[in-house]
Every structure is written in C-alpha cells, then in structure tokens.
C-alpha cells in the first residue's frame, strides 16, 4: 500500500482513527477493571462464555448496523424476530422436518418480516414506529400460537448447531466472526455497501445520483431480520426448544453494541467491525456484572450508562472534528 502513485489522503486518515481507538480502548479498560476486581473474569472458561454470549448479540448488532448506517436508526423488532425464529425452528423440528428445511423455512419467515418492514420504511414510515409495531405484532402472534408455552424440538438432531465447538470455539462464535467480516467487506468493498452509506449520509443527494433509498431500506431491514433469525436458530438448537423470552433485552444490547461501536445515529458512518467489538464489550460488561453478583436492575443501569457515555463522547468528538 505504499505505491508512489498513491493519492495522499490529507489530514483525514489520522483523525478517522479516533473512533476505532476509542472502541478498542473501552474494551481494554473493561478488561483491566475485570482483571483487577474479579479473578475469575480473565479465565479461558469465562472467555468462552463471553464470546458465546457476544456472538448472539453480535450477529444481531452487526446486521442491524446496516440499518443504522443507512440512516434508518435501529430496528426495535429484532428480539421478537429472533424469538419467533427460535419458536418456529423448534416447531418445525418437532414436526419431524429435516434440519435443512427447518432452517430454510425460518429464513423465509424472517425474510417476509424483514422485507415488509423495509417496505413500510421505504414508503415513508418512521423506522422506530414501524419496527416497534411489527415487534408487538410478532410477539403477540407468537404468544397466541404457542399459548405462552415453551416449544420443544423433541429431537437432538439440530443440537450440534448450537453446542459443537470446531477447533474449541463455539459455532455461534464462528458464525459471528464470519458475519462480522462479511458485513465489513460488504460495507467497504461492494457497491451495495457504498450505496447504503451514501443513502445514510444524505438520502436526497443519493436519490439525485440515481441510488434508490427505498430499495436500500428494504435490503437493510431484510439483512437485519436474517441476522435475528440466525440468532434464533442457534438458540433453539442449543437448548432444543424455543421460548418467547429467549431474547429479552436483546434489542437494547444490540443497540448498545452499535452505539459503543461509534456508528453515527443519523447514518452515513459506522463499521461492522467496530459494532462487533462493541458487542464483545457489552457481553463482557454483562458477564462481569453477573460475576460480581449485580442485580438485574443494576445491570440494565450500567448498559444504559454505557450508551449514554458513548453517544455523548462520540458526539463531542465529531463536533470537534467538524470545527477543526
């Protein structure tokens, strides 16, 4: 990358390193605090726990990052989509379907949910309102159809998806790393990723250069729904059951991961890899707080605090950069 014909990038490069450094820095600080206060935090066993937990939140958050970068804020229906997928997968397995067709059916189901939401946003719906409503519809539907009961797969045919550990690392984690890398490559190296970024940066300017913001909205909500479906399948396979409350709080954790990762809430800026690090941070924070015996309320408090601190810090950073 040091070819002589390379165009110099001016002062932009060093400054653009601030956000990634801040994300990694937050993770390091968390690690040090954990290491000093809690001996069992930095152990191989606990490390596996963290990355397994981080994987599910991470898959949901990384795929939702596209929505944020495209300027549609967040999806508030991912936890319901994931729960619906887990229940659907468990139900399909319990009906004796082969694993591949159960997976396919769940993906189709989630695609419908995602494309419908994207379509509603493309037609001018507010993303927050649309996904909040869809989330309620999905939750209600799932509660109604399952009668609020746990749906068991009744078979261990799919358990390997959720519990096996190729090379000592859980499948969820492999999937998380793979999805984070794929999404990062898609965002930075493909035409689609560029179009997502440009729509988020300025949807009118994007429309003027021939990019269709509505189509981008459909795609990003679709991708996010697929991510949630995958998280649902992993969970249903791991526990051989699907339950409504599997993903309680996943929305806020995923949003926290995106914001800790420094994506711009108004769109046009963000990174899948930073969101991935943000997911590890949130999972690590949750894990540390559980090890310290913090109650549920205290844990929610600290996750909320992490969002507040990161949003304020990045806003200040960006404003200073703009003035500079």
């Amino acid at each position: 990358m040091t070819g002589s014909g390379r165009v110099p990038t001016g002062g932009a490069r060093p400054r653009s390193m601030i956000v990634p450094l801040a994300v990694v820095g937050a993770l390091v600080v968390l690690g040090v605090i954990g290491w000093v206060t809690t001996p069992e935090f930095i152990t191989y066993r606990n490390f596996l726990n963290i990355i397994r937990a981080a994987a599910l939140i991470g898959i949901i958050a990384v795929t939702m990052t596209l929505i944020t970068i495209a300027g549609s804020f967040f999806s508030l229906s991912v936890s319901q989509t994931a729960a619906m997928s887990a229940i659907g997968f468990a139900a399909f397995m319990s009906w004796g379907w082969p694993v591949w067709s159960a997976v396919l059916a769940v993906i189709l189901l989630a695609s419908v949910v995602g494309v419908l939401q994207g379509g509603a946003v493309a037609l001018g719906g507010n993303p927050i309102v649309v996904t909040l409503a869809v989330g309620a519809v999905l939750f209600g539907l799932a509660a109604w159809l399952t009668d609020n009961k746990t749906v068991r797969t009744g078979t261990y045919a799919a358990e390997w998806i959720g519990t096996s550990r190729p090379l000592g690392i859980p499948t969820q984690t492999w999937a998380f790393v793979l999805i984070a890398l794929l999404t990062a490559v898609m965002l930075t190296r493909t035409r689609f990723g560029r179009e997502v970024t440009l729509v988020g940066a300025n949807r009118w300017a994007a429309a003027t250069v021939g990019i269709r913001p509505g189509r981008i909205a459909v795609y990003v909500f679709w991708v996010s729904a697929l991510g949630a479906a995958l998280a649902g399948i992993f969970t249903a396979a791991q526990f051989s059951q699907g339950r409504l409350d599997h993903f309680d709080g996943a929305d806020i954790d995923a949003i926290a991961a995106i914001l800790v990762g420094g994506a711009a809430i108004q769109g046009g800026e963000g990174s899948a890899l930073r969101t991935a690090v943000g997911a590890v941070f949130i999972a690590g924070l949750q894990n540390l707080m559980v090890l310290r015996g913090f109650s549920y309320g205290v844990r929610v408090f600290f996750v909320g605090l992490a969002i507040l601190v990161s949003v304020s810090a990045y806003t200040l950073l960006r404003n200073r950069r703009r003035l500079a």
Partner: peptide
C-alpha cells in the same frame, strides 16, 4: 447542501457516487 453533495463523506466517494457502476 441539500441534495448536491455528501458533506460527511470523503471527496473521492462524492466524485464516484453517480458512476458506481463504472468503478465496480
């Protein structure tokens, strides 16, 4: 400012934005 330029994106991305098909 409204629909002619992406202020928060690099100049390169602005310049290629109408011709993404040609650079991919």
């Amino acid at each position: 400012k409204r629909d002619g330029i992406f202020l928060q994106r690099p100049v390169v991305e602005n310049l290629t934005s109408p011709s993404l098909g040609l650079v991919s």
